[in-house]
């Protein structure tokens, strides 16, 4: 028995991986070509449930704390467990105290310890918060890594068109199409996110650094080949059009205030994604007419996809055993 998963963003691929791990046959279809996923490939890839708790519900921490282990098990070597550093520019230092008050799992560290952790930030900040239990990964490597891993397990992929005959062979369906599902789900809304990828060999970071600012908290996450992802805006809009000047200025300004050498970095890419979100900004696993869906991952795709994939896989496995019982094929 094969399950058809619609959508090859982080939700669909995590579900495929979770089902494959449980020995269930899977086919994945996505109407777009690679790169994978609209919102997912623009993600920061931070597995940072303690930091996110500053402005998210408790569930983000409960569901997200095992995410790094899940990704590590699926894609050995892709997860970097170096924690997260949170800093604030001098005059916004009150923001650091506020952030500390609202989160757990951190230590307040001084300039010497900052210099040990991130030598390139030496002397730039007097205090920081260090969340040593957090991790990060490169979303695009993780997505294509999942595709390769699944293909090696004989999972079939259909990109760039309707699933067509793929659906004929599949007994069950799962919908992981993200914001595209909003036409059928009135609770789902789009939250626009804009990001930049910068490249400079002058700076290296070993972990994502969050910069607190009263108006727009941003992060700089290190990627391979001297690249850095700077993100991300949160605008209540489902428009996917190009990045605006103001957003780009704000993101560049934040990177520049983290380290002036970013002023000479190359802007390699700008990106825009529309995050699917429910009113409480928490994801949901739903069942509609027998179709299981994962949606509303908001800004927590890589962090919460594993927990949602487990929940959805439980439901699908129940459906399978129900069908097998009815068909009399169950031992």
């Amino acid at each position: 028995m094969t399950i058809l998963i619609k959508g090859a963003g982080v939700a669909g691929l995590a579900l495929a991986a979770e089902l494959a791990r449980r020995g269930v046959g899977v086919t994945v279809a996505d109407c777009s070509e690679r790169p994978l996923g609209n919102a997912s490939s623009m993600a920061g890839g931070m597995l940072a449930p303690w930091c996110e708790r500053a402005s998210a519900e408790e569930e983000v921490l409960t569901w997200g704390r095992d995410a790094a282990d899940w990704w590590d098990a699926m894609l050995p070597g892709e997860v970097t467990r170096n924690g997260t550093l949170v800093v604030a520019p001098g005059r916004d230092r009150v923001e650091l105290a506020r952030f500390a008050e609202r989160t757990s799992g951190h230590a307040v560290i001084d300039a010497d310890r900052i210099a040990e952790l991130e030598p390139d930030l030496a002397g730039r900040f007097r205090h920081a918060l260090f969340f040593d239990g957090e991790a990060h990964l490169d979303p695009r490597r993780a997505l294509s890594g999942l595709v390769d891993m699944l293909e090696s397990r004989d999972v079939r992929f259909y990109f760039g068109g309707a699933p067509g005959d793929a659906s004929v062979h599949c007994a069950l369906e799962a919908d992981c199409t993200g914001f595209a599902q909003a036409v059928d789900d009135p609770d789902l809304r789009g939250v626009r996110g804009e990001m930049l990828i910068l490249r400079t060999a002058e700076i290296s970071l070993s972990r994502p650094v969050r910069l607190l600012h009263p108006r727009f908290p941003v992060y700089v996450a290190p990627r391979r080949d001297h690249c850095f992802m700077v993100g991300a805006t949160m605008i209540e809009s489902s428009r996917a059009g190009p990045v605006t000047v103001r957003s780009m200025m704000e993101l560049m300004n934040a990177a520049y205030s983290l380290h002036p050498a970013f002023g000479e970095a190359e802007v390699v890419e700008t990106g825009v994604g529309v995050r699917p979100a429910y009113p409480d900004n928490l994801p949901r696993v739903k069942v509609n007419d027998g179709v299981v869906s994962i949606n509303g991952l908001y800004r927590h795709g890589f962090l919460l996809a594993p927990a949602m994939a487990r929940q959805a896989a439980d439901l699908l496995c129940e459906q399978i055993s129900g069908m097998e019982l009815r068909n009399g094929t169950h031992g």
């Binding site: 909003a182 789902l188 809304r189 789009g190 939250v191 605008i235 209540e236 809009s237 489902s238 428009r239 059009g241 605006t244 103001r246 979100a277």
Partner: peptide, 13 residues
């Protein structure tokens, strides 16, 4: 910012 460059359509929010 929310309707910049858009159709002015009232979104989910």
């Amino acid at each position: 910012r929310e309707i910049a460059g858009g159709s002015g359509r009232v979104g989910g929010f």
